[in-house]
Write a protein that binds this DNA or RNA. Structure first.
Length: 782
DNA sequence: GTTTAGGGTTCG
């Protein structure tokens, strides 16, 4: 078999390949040169799933990294393996293996511009007379270089083409600001279609026609001014202009185009690259767009519709009904009242989908929108309760023959001119959040009579009318927080508590009138349990400065590769010529798999440190002294694990030599727990904690109670909230349930809490404070 | 099998 497994040689520097073969340097590899009796060697840093090509032959792609130059992208090369050899390799080759190939063809790499790798790729197959040797690298053997190669070479570097540099027949990556778009609609072929016109700072426009059988893989554009990043879009000339069209492997990210909004990509891709650099690009495009692209104005509300005009409406779907073959009815509301009498499209009661009670309750606030032709199919699939943006609705003034009063009709005509269509907005869309808050604040009694209110009270259950009514109902019935202990205690009125002496403990039933801080990220602090001090969480800039400061001292080579760690050092290629050293801590005299490895880094930037935390279990930034490695200033995290930065208390810590880590490394299965690491390093670990002030009321009085919570109350670890958008949204939603914005006191939900009172005395005054304890947010609220 | 749409408001 031409795929050979080689044994690990004792001397690990040479791979035992047949004598007649000579190693070829990647630098000397060129198309058309004679590479007979030469071999290419590298570490497998990436492999793709085995696939079949159009002609039915098997195909397997891997990426090799040259270990002599691990930190250069150009020293990695794509290897395309065909036929039986592809199958054989796919079975045995793993990341970290050393891979040797002889008898290959060298061709120009069509993806070099995109992935930044070698300008050529290798074609390998039995037919071409290729031979493959490999040395098992994973998981039994790692060298520091392999660890580094695996870490620094993973993400391909994409090149983005400005819109004025597009050429016919190319496949490119690009950024653009949406100047015009048609939300995905059902085409006359087999796919969904979306047409998007982009503009960029080169001031050139590009209209892209995007097709996909899967609506989700088209860009999620909600408004003009959104920013998109397209990968692998094909450029063609059409009618004398460049045009973009989906090609195989097309992928997109969409961002809110508002300056200052969170940079969170909308995408259906499971994995995608998104680095600090790209983050910066989005920010820059936003700034450019702010003064160069006219963003759509504030969306129209029903209260401001003008007859005879076209408008975009952000609304919630309350009901829908089939009308006839070419039209379909949507009943929607946006919380405001249309100032004109609007038409009611007659439909059979049995055809009307939606909660009867809600339809009745909102009957004076909903409008009927009749959608036609190509929009019908999409309209049918919409879920009651979902949030929509309907683009280019026609407000048509009409008067019925039988009456003098003119009324207003809402049509979504057939076709897709001017972006006419329907888009479903997700719950986390900022416009939806705003609309939801508004809808919840609408006082239905103002536009309803008492009869309908009774109906709501009477009909307890709503099945699929999301969030709005059912949520409101739920909130008025069950408490939104529950007790985790002492259930036998009975409630005490707040007035009684205020008039009692401290310290005592109480069970209370109260409403949350307000809380501080309103910006939830401000509620996260660092707490030292030894000296009881609280401090702000330092921001990334502070850390960056400390790293820059420590990089001034070059790594001391005398401290490299000791009994308990292996080291690699290299100099960056840029002008700064920075020296970086990484020390991989060994276990049982061996290096571990990246996900189990603790490493120490000297001279790295914020971005490099961050990148290392993605691949390795623990990262500890250090600096060299004359005779030892030591931790940086304690204003910087002493340890990074996953997304969490761990800090030590400056007052209570007494840093010990980093060599103490070797005692953990010597354990049978090193756990690398932050508490254990902190202990051996003499660090008093600061804990992340939520600190909030809740103003509770119960009709007898009001008091401020502090919430001091590591994780229990919100069931969200305070340590993870600052780096996790999902958890932030979850916490915001929880607070919105506990204390819904814009709601009257009577409509607020009940909280069940334990609070304890305690005395705070200083020379000047005496004060009684209250703290919430043994309380958690109810399960169905989280 | 490689289309569909290729921006520029309306039948109802």
């Amino acid at each position: 078999m031409p795929v050979h497994l080689l044994k690990i040689p004792d001397d690990q520097s040479e791979t035992p390949v047949p004598r007649h073969l000579q190693k070829e340097d990647l630098k000397h590899l060129q198309e058309g040169h004679d590479h007979t009796n030469k071999y290419i060697q590298g570490i497998v840093i990436l492999s793709y799933p085995l696939t079949k090509l159009g002609d039915g032959t098997d195909f397997f792609k891997i990426v090799l990294q040259d270990l002599d130059d691990v930190c250069s992208r150009i020293s990695s090369i794509n290897v395309l393996i065909h036929g039986k050899m592809a199958q054989d390799c796919a079975k045995v080759i793993r990341h970290g293996d050393t891979f040797v190939v002889a008898g290959f063809k060298v061709l120009k790499s069509p993806t070099a511009r995109e992935d930044g790798r070698h300008g050529c790729h290798l074609e390998v197959s039995e037919e071409a007379g290729s031979t493959i040797y490999y040395v098992r690298g994973y998981p039994t053997f790692f060298s520091p270089k392999i660890l580094l190669a695996l870490c620094f070479s993973i993400a391909p570097k994409y090149v983005y083409t400005p819109l004025n540099r597009l050429k016919d027949g190319t496949i490119v990556n690009l950024y653009g600001i949406v100047k015009f778009f048609k939300p995905p609609y059902v085409s006359k072929g087999t796919d969904y279609c979306s047409v998007v016109t982009l503009v960029d700072p080169s001031n050139v426009k590009l209209t892209c026609t995007l097709f996909s059988g899967n609506q989700d893989s088209l860009p999620r554009i909600y408004k003009i001014g959104d920013i998109v990043r397209f990968h692998r879009i094909k450029i063609r000339e059409y009618n004398g202009q460049m045009q973009g069209i989906t090609s195989g492997g097309f992928a997109s990210l969409t961002f809110d185009g508002t300056v200052g909004a969170p940079v969170v990509p909308r995408t259906s891709s499971r994995v995608y690259t998104f680095t600090d650099e790209e983050h910066k690009t989005i920010e820059e495009l936003r700034v450019w767009a702010a003064s160069n692209v006219s963003i759509s104005g504030p969306a129209a509300k029903l209260s401001s519709v003008q007859p005879m005009l076209f408008f975009d409406l952000t609304c919630q779907l309350v009901g829908k009904a089939k009308v006839d073959g070419s039209s379909f009815l949507l009943k929607v509301w946006d919380g405001t009242k249309c100032p004109y009498p609007s038409w009611r499209v007659p439909v059979e009661a049995k055809d009307l989908e939606g909660e009867k009670v809600v339809l009745h309750q909102l009957r004076n606030l909903t409008v009927d929108i009749l959608v036609y032709d190509n929009h019908v199919q999409l309209a049918k699939s919409l879920k009651i309760g979902s949030f929509l943006r309907i683009y280019s609705i026609h407000a048509k003034q009409a008067s019925a023959d039988t009456e003098d009063v003119s009324h207003i009709e809402f049509h979504l005509h057939g076709g897709t001119c001017y972006g006419r269509g329907i888009g479903v907005l997700p719950e986390n869309n900022p416009d939806v959040k705003e609309l939801k808050a508004f809808l919840e604040s609408v006082d239905l009694a103002d536009s309803q009579n008492m009869e309908s209110m009774f109906l709501v009270e009477f009909n307890g259950t709503f099945s699929d009318f999301t969030d709005l009514e059912s949520h409101l109902q739920r909130c008025q019935q069950l408490p939104v927080t529950v007790l985790t202990d002492h259930q036998d205690l009975s409630n005490t009125e707040l007035k009684t508590i205020i008039n009692s002496t401290a310290p005592q403990q109480y069970r209370v039933r109260a409403k949350l009138r307000t809380y501080k801080p309103q910006k939830l990220h401000q509620s996260v602090k660092l707490h030292c349990s030894k000296c009881n001090s609280l401090q702000e969480v330092p921001d990334g800039d502070d850390f960056d400065l400390i790293l820059q400061g420590s990089a001034v001292t070059a790594p001391n080579p005398e401290l490299h590769s000791t009994s308990w760690y292996d080291s690699v050092m290299w100099t960056t290629q840029d002008q700064k010529q920075r020296k970086i050293a990484i020390h991989f801590v060994k276990h049982d005299e061996m290096l571990q798999q990246p996900e189990d490895t603790l490493l120490m880094i000297e001279g790295g930037t914020l971005k490099e440190v961050w990148k290392l935390t993605k691949r390795f279990k623990c990262v500890i930034p250090v600096k060299s002294t004359e005779d030892d490695l030591e931790l940086l200033d304690l204003s910087a995290p002493f340890l990074l694990q996953g997304n969490v930065k761990y800090y030590g208390c400056k007052q209570c810590s007494a840093p010990k030599p980093v060599k103490n880590l070797s005692s953990i490394a010597a354990e049978q299965q090193p756990s690398w727990e932050p508490t254990v690491i902190a202990q051996v390093l003499g660090i008093e670990l600061l804990q992340y904690v939520f600190i909030m002030k809740f103003t509770l009321v119960d009709g007898t009085g009001a008091l401020n109670a502090y919430l001091f919570d590591y994780e229990k109350f919100f069931q969200i670890p305070a340590s993870e909230i600052l780096t996790n958008n999902f958890l932030q949204e979850k916490m915001q939603m929880t607070m919105n349930t506990l204390c819904p914005p814009g709601r009257k006191l009577g409509d607020l939900p009940w909280l069940e809490c334990f609070i304890k009172s305690y005395n705070v005395r200083d020379a000047m005054k005496h004060q009684v404070c209250y703290q919430i304890f043994d309380t958690t947010v109810a399960e169905d609220v989280v």
